[in-house]
Measured scan of single mutants.
Amino acid sequence: MPSETPQAEVGPTGCPHRSGPHSAKGSLEKGSPEDKEAKEPLWIRPDAPSRCTWQLGRPASESPHHHTAPAKSPKILPDILKKIGDTPMVRINKIGKKFGLKCELLAKCEFFNAGGSVKDRISLRMIEDAERDGTLKPGDTIIEPTSGNTGIGLALAAAVRGYRCIIVMPEKMSSEKVDVLRALGAEIVRTPTNARFDSPESHVGVAWRLKNEIPNSHILDQYRNASNPLAHYDTTADEILQQCDGKLDMLVASVGTGGTITGIARKLKEKCPGCRIIGVDPEGSILAEPEELNQTEQTTYEVEGIGYDFIPTVLDRTVVDKWFKSNDEEAFTFARMLIAQEGLLCGGSAGSTVAVAVKAAQELQEGQRCVVILPDSVRNYMTKFLSDRWMLQKGFLKEEDLTEKKPWWWHLRVQELGLSAPLTVLPTITCGHTIEILREKGFDQAPVVDEAGVILGMVTLGNMLSSLLAGKVQPSDQVGKVIYKQFKQIRLTDTLGRLSHILEMDHFALVV
């Protein structure tokens, strides 16, 4: 994948999101292997301009796509893939009243899908469409860049269908997702969380590099694949309309690839034109409109599966009536509230959605109805927002919020430890010299600072030695090549209790 991002070429006709291997024109390309080798690009942008032909009021008969309808489940399912879809609609009884809503608040519980998330729908649909058009064949390999849930859905379907599955996901995604993927037989590649989507090191860039190296491999490409919004247009939206008897006044959905909100909203605009569509985008993402909503100094966020630093091709923002931004604290607070007060075992993005819903639905009156999409299960986040310690460490809970008995030293300040200034190293000294210094002084790690004293990161003896043994660096290389740029900081005025929580999850903390 090139470091400079080429513009994806656009073909003359058809839909841009065809499933299957992508040609340089962004659509299915038939021909000899030699032709494909000559024409197939190194990668295709996940934010390529959409060429979708959908228009409100256009006859369904003019759609270029294969459409399906929700099917009634048999008493005995032939395999677990038949437990994807037909998820329950559940009334939220307490939270709406707590925040003064007059309307009825309903939750579409997508964590009841077989793999635990709304992404099971698009995973199965992308595979079925690729099999139907002859792209996927027995023994082929599926590769997908994902925040985890699409990966789980694909790995689940691949396990049943017999495909090899490789999932490329950023490091910030939970260990629970990784464990589930491994249990399903998927191979996992992790990428830096802070890598831009168009960087060769991003999950998108690495996935395309693997595709170019592995024979008979395919990126189904949830960011561009029409099967993504079509899955929701054909099934999720129809289920909502049936469950609500066609009567709903507002739908609120958090947005990642945009397939969920695009597919549902398009069908609702056709069948229930008075329904307002509300999009939820986390602070630090750029999906919301108008652009002024996205202006923030924050560039990272903890909530998973929603928000991006690019506009995915499948996201149709014209069908969203209003956007709201959400933050991590309210997302996790509301997710825990949904679990504790409503018994809905949902993930953090569901918290984002409901946090926005109780604001947006203030305009609705008694007798009206708001539906929220709860995308995934708490299963993926047992060591994250479900953990009091994690919430404390991230600053989303305060010590006084917890009532468990603490040891005698818990409320003492870090400054009472009488710490001395640490050994520091410059980023320009060599790895070999740094190892000598650390061994001589008896230290395992040291902060790396520039000549102005600005902290650049941390270097550890173990990481340097393993990097040297693996051949990633040489003793003569500058130590700046092996620094940890993500590390926890703590102030002298913070409590030892807070430091204790940090050290339970990290090997060190830097006192500043």
Rank of each mutant, 00 (worst) to 15 (best):
P138Y: 12
P273W: 11
G96S: 15
A226G: 07
D179N: 04
R45L: 14
D179Y: 14
K102R: 14
P74V: 14
S27A: 09
T146N: 08
G85V: 15
S175A: 11
E62G: 15
I92L: 05
L248D: 01
E62N: 14
H218G: 01
N93F: 01
H66W: 08
S254E: 01
G100I: 01
E171L: 03
E62T: 01
G134I: 01
I143V: 05
S3D: 01
T68Y: 06
R190L: 06
F111L: 08
V90L: 04
T68C: 09
E110S: 05
L220W: 03
P64H: 14
D179T: 11
R276C: 09
E37W: 15
Y223M: 07
E176Q: 11
P49W: 11
R164L: 07
T5G: 08
V90G: 05
A253W: 01
E144T: 06
K269W: 06
G134D: 14
P273L: 13
L124K: 10
W208A: 14
F112R: 01
D221R: 01
P12S: 10
P2Q: 10
Y223L: 04
G20Q: 15
W43L: 12
R132S: 15
L241S: 04
G31W: 12
Q242M: 14
S63P: 10
E201V: 04
G31Y: 06
S19Q: 10
D133I: 01
A114I: 01
S19W: 14
P64L: 09
G96T: 05
G153T: 01
K247D: 01
D79W: 05
S27K: 11
T5A: 01
I152L: 04
E37S: 11
R125Q: 12
P138G: 09
A155P: 08
L105G: 01
A130E: 01
E144G: 06
S175E: 11
R58A: 15
V189F: 01
K177F: 03
T135E: 01
T191Y: 04
L210R: 01
H17N: 08
C244K: 01
F99P: 01
Q55R: 14
Y223D: 01
V206D: 01
R276I: 07
C275N: 01
R91Y: 12
R224G: 10
K137F: 10
L77D: 01
S27F: 06
S227W: 03
H22F: 12
M89Q: 01
R209K: 10
C244G: 04
T5N: 15
A8W: 04
E40M: 01
R18S: 10
C272L: 10
I214W: 06
A231Y: 07
H66E: 01
Q243L: 11
G256S: 04
T150W: 01
L77W: 05
M89P: 01
T235S: 12
R182V: 01
G263I: 01
L77H: 04
S199F: 03
K25N: 12
V160W: 07
G116V: 08
N149S: 01
T135R: 08
A38G: 09
K25W: 03
L251R: 01
I76N: 15
A159V: 13
P170M: 06
K211C: 05
S227V: 01
R182D: 05
T150G: 01
I152E: 05
T262C: 08
M173V: 05
L56D: 14
E213T: 14
S175I: 14
G26L: 11
S227N: 13
I44F: 12
I92C: 07
A60Y: 10
E270W: 06
K25A: 01
G148S: 01
I142L: 09
S63F: 12
I214G: 05
D79Q: 09
P200W: 10
E187T: 15
S199I: 05
G96I: 15
G246D: 10
D179R: 06
T257C: 04
E29T: 12
E201Y: 04
T260G: 07
G148R: 01
E37R: 06
P12H: 14
E176S: 09
A195Q: 10
L230H: 15
W208F: 07
G14S: 06
A253R: 01
S23G: 06
E104P: 03
D140I: 01
H203L: 06
A71R: 15
D245S: 09
S227I: 01
N225Y: 01
G258N: 04
A237L: 01
V10K: 14
T193S: 01
I166V: 12
V160R: 13
M89S: 01
N149V: 01
S254R: 06
T262R: 01
A48T: 14
R164W: 05
C275F: 07
E144V: 07
I240S: 07
N113H: 10
E187V: 07
V118H: 14
Q55E: 10
V206W: 04
T87L: 05
A186Y: 01
K267S: 04
I122W: 01
S3G: 11
K72M: 03
W43C: 12
L230S: 07
G100R: 05
